[in-house]
Amino acid sequence: LEGASLENIPQDDIQYLTDMGLIRRSVSGLEIANPIYREIIPRELTAVTQYNFEPLFQQSWYVLPDGRLDAGALLTAFQEFFRENSEIWLERFDYREAGPQLLLQAFLQRIINAGGRIDREYGLGRKRTDLMVIWKDQKIVIELKILYKSLKATISEGLKQTAEYMDRCGTDEGHLIIFDRRPGKKWSQKIFRRAQTYQGKKIVVWGM
């Protein structure tokens, strides 16, 4: 779910999940087997969190007068929430390494429910998670990355990946979210919002 490389995972576990039909091998590595499982697995892992979000966030707060989803306001709200509450909320997940991605997906699902849907793509070893929020006729690409290398290198790589995903999805609305999980890092150094352009595509980069 976080797109990280497999380390210290028994081969028997991988084979078991493959035999169960939950994951499969592709040309780009292991991946969740089909779109249904890509939807069900994160929903199941974040179901309780979505319920807890219900009194905290209302869909109407992030819908513009013309009916479009205000992705900027939505992600600003999550960024503020993540800064203030992430340490407490991430402890609630059994899979803490994927906690930031799961928390964001629970947040988005709370807002998107009954008005749209979220398409998800995961890739083991690719160190990213691709989300596409579909709201009526609006498509919003959100690329999630954990900071493993320098911030400059991560943004450079992420912009390319986000632009490619935007092109594949046929949208001009894209966001790149970088979670900095390094211990000892001050929030003032991790939190930012930058508007950037890559190959003619405008992409908003969020640091958390």
Rank of each mutant, 00 (worst) to 15 (best):
L159R: 02
K160G: 03
F82T: 06
M166H: 03
P183Q: 09
S5G: 13
Y16S: 12
G29Q: 03
F192I: 06
L159G: 05
I36T: 14
V63D: 09
Q138N: 02
Y165I: 09
N85E: 13
V204T: 13
G21L: 05
A77W: 02
L151E: 15
I177N: 03
P10L: 07
P10Q: 10
I178P: 01
S86I: 02
E31D: 12
Q59G: 08
W61C: 10
V133D: 01
F107R: 00
L131P: 00
L104E: 06
K185S: 09
I88T: 15
N85W: 15
F93P: 06
R181L: 15
I32K: 01
E44N: 11
A163P: 00
L103F: 11
A71Q: 07
G158P: 01
I140R: 00
E39C: 07
S86Q: 10
S156A: 14
E84T: 12
N8P: 05
I118E: 01
I88V: 14
K185C: 09
A4Q: 13
I9N: 09
Y198I: 07
L131S: 03
A33P: 02
S86W: 00
T162M: 02
S150M: 05
Q189W: 09
T49M: 12
M208W: 11
Q58S: 11
N85R: 15
R38I: 01
R68A: 10
K186C: 08
E39W: 11
V48W: 09
E87Q: 15
C169N: 13
R24I: 09
R126C: 03
R194M: 07
L151A: 12
K152V: 14
Y148N: 14
I203E: 01
I155T: 06
L75D: 04
L6H: 10
I88H: 13
E157P: 03
E80N: 14
L103T: 07
A195W: 10
I88E: 15
I9D: 07
E143Q: 11
R25M: 15
I23Y: 00
L30A: 03
I32R: 01
Q196K: 12
R25Q: 15
Q138F: 05
R43A: 08
F192D: 00
G99P: 06
I40F: 11
P35W: 00
G116H: 00
V205M: 04
Q79N: 10
I111S: 04
D172P: 01
R43P: 00
D130P: 00
Y62D: 05
W206T: 07
Y198T: 06
